[in-house]
Computed example of a mutant assay.
Amino acid sequence: MSTNRTGPSDALADVRALINANFATKVAGRRLDGDTHLVHDLGLDSMDLLTLVAAIENEFDQPVVGADEPPPELSTVGAVAEVVERMRAAAEQDDVAP
């Protein structure tokens, strides 16, 4: 999956791809839009959510949350996409910093 894309729709597409890659059996045939709830709509459990966070961290080579930050609310596909957008913005700032 390409992580060079930018923008909310690209982040949503990347999150959909990560979810499909990691939970193909659970999400087969289900809609994956911004309002899709990870637990209620897709049936992901707490271990699945940890797997998703690990997949995001591996894909973007940075932690989902900083050491001094509270964990993000990852209840919907859209919420995960917002986290990915923040991670991309932080990575871009790191690339520009002297």
Rank of each mutant, 00 (worst) to 15 (best):
D45W: 00
L49C: 05
R88L: 12
A21V: 09
L12W: 03
A54H: 00
S46H: 03
T3N: 04
A89K: 13
D45S: 00
P8K: 05
E73W: 10
S2Y: 08
E82C: 12
V65Q: 13
G78Q: 07
D14C: 08
G29W: 07
G66R: 06
A54G: 00
R16Y: 13
V83N: 04
V96G: 05
R31G: 14
I56C: 04
V53L: 00
G66S: 08
P63F: 02
V53T: 05
M1Q: 11
D48A: 03
R88I: 14
A91E: 07
D14L: 15
A17R: 06
Q62P: 09
F23S: 03
D14K: 00
D68K: 05
Q93N: 10
G29A: 12
A89P: 15
A24P: 08
D95G: 05
P72M: 08
A13N: 15
L42S: 06
A13L: 15
V53A: 00
L32N: 05
A28F: 11
G78K: 04
D33N: 10
R31T: 11
N22D: 10
A79L: 13
T36R: 03
D68P: 02
A90D: 10
A97Y: 06
S9H: 10
S46Y: 03
D48W: 01
T3M: 02
E92W: 01
D33Y: 08
G29K: 07
P63D: 00
N22M: 06
D94E: 14
R86N: 12
R30K: 15
A24S: 10
L12G: 04
L38I: 14
A13F: 09
V39R: 02
D41F: 03
A11V: 14
T51A: 02
F23G: 02
D14R: 03
L42A: 04
P63G: 05
R16T: 14
R31E: 11
T6D: 15
V27Y: 00
T36G: 06
I19Y: 02
M87I: 11
D48S: 06
F23A: 02
R5I: 13
H37V: 15
P70D: 09
V80W: 06
N4R: 06
D14E: 09
A90Q: 07
A54S: 05
D41I: 08
V80H: 05
E92T: 04
E85D: 09
H40C: 11
R16S: 12
V27G: 01
L44I: 07
A21P: 07
D94Q: 15
A89G: 15
G43D: 02
A55S: 01
R88P: 09
A21T: 14
A24H: 03
T51V: 06
